[in-house]
């Protein structure tokens, strides 16, 4: 509703209300981006050297005929997306409700709960995009990108980021203390990172565990990234992987909106 107020002054509201919310996070990020950029490049560099070159030397036959370094890097890119997405959706969201109370400040402005959530999620996805792009550039330097399809990695990791960040937003909004967030890292992020096909193919897992890997959003992200950088077809038909991730993203967003509303509109 625009127009004028009772005193005849124009009522101003942002055209896209989530935009200034994203603007807030960018203003905050501006304070730390320099050190952030440094680690964004350094971390992939060290992991590529450590896992690819170091561990890779012991995996002489490669994986399915592919050099271990070429095989593991797309997995590491997807797992970086997971780490950043979870890190940015746990403590910052918890803080928005309990410490900085930034959400209640935003709520007093003409923003709706959906705008507050969208703006913050957009920032998380931007962070995911930036760190994985940095990783992709390092990978390009090491010559491990074997196909032009590598350009599909950024949109894939953004989808993976949303599939992970949205449900984690919901979790961070409902946990009673920040200690509960460590459970998420121990029982979701860590096992996913280890067993969802980042470092070795899930086919090496016992059948039962393999099912769990298929359920994790990370495995789908890993396989899509790997298919892209190697220029091969993913294990499932492409729409299958994409729809599975989109399902996590959609359910996650609906859940997050629901719990954000329940927390803020009381």
């Amino acid at each position: 509703m625009d127009g004028t107020d009772l005193a005849g002054r124009p009522v101003t509201r942002p055209r896209v209300p989530a935009w200034p919310v994203l603007g807030y996070y960018l203003t905050s990020y501006r304070r730390t981006w320099r050190s952030g950029v440094f680690t964004s490049f350094l971390l992939p560099l060290l992991t590529v050297l450590g896992f690819g070159v170091g561990v890779g030397a012991y995996v002489e036959q490669g994986v399915g005929g592919v050099d271990y370094l070429d095989w593991v890097v797309p997995g590491l890119i997807a797992s970086t997306a997971l780490q950043v997405a979870v890190l940015e959706s746990t403590y910052p969201v918890y803080s928005g409700f309990h410490w900085s109370r930034v959400y209640s400040g935003q709520q007093a402005a003409p923003l709706r709960v959906g705008d507050i959530l969208t703006g913050h999620l957009a920032f998380v996805l931007l962070r995911v995009l930036l760190s994985t792009t940095a990783f992709l550039l390092v990978a390009a330097v090491f010559g491990v990108l074997r196909s032009g399809w590598a350009l599909a990695v950024p949109p894939v990791v953004v989808l993976l980021g949303l599939a992970v960040a949205a449900p984690v937003f919901a979790v961070s909004a409902v946990v009673p203390t920040d200690n509960h967030l460590t459970i998420l890292f121990r029982f979701a992020v860590l096992p996913m990172t280890l067993f969802a096909g980042v470092f070795f193919p899930v086919e090496s897992l016992p059948v039962g565990l393999r099912g769990l890997a298929y359920l994790s959003p990370l495995w789908h992200g890993v396989e899509l990234c790997r298919a892209a950088t190697l220029g091969v077809a993913p294990p499932w038909p492409l729409p299958g992987h994409l729809l599975y991730l989109a399902g996590w993203a959609l359910v996650g967003c609906l859940l997050a909106l629901r719990v954000f509303r329940r927390r803020l509109v009381v």
């Binding site: 101003t12 509201r13 942002p14 055209r15 209300p17 200034p20 919310v21 603007g23 807030y24 203003t27 905050s28 304070r31 900085s100 109370r101 930034v102 209640s104 400040g105 935003q106 007093a108 402005a109 003409p110 923003l111």
Partner: peptide, 26 residues
């Protein structure tokens, strides 16, 4: 609105807090 418990961003400057908030109003 001036709430009882403030919701300023302690990491931002005084000016940034105002400008960021003004942007919420378009």
């Amino acid at each position: 609105v001036c709430p009882q418990v403030d919701s300023l961003d302690p990491e931002l400057t005084v000016r940034e807090n105002l400008v960021v908030y003004a942007r919420y109003f378009g």
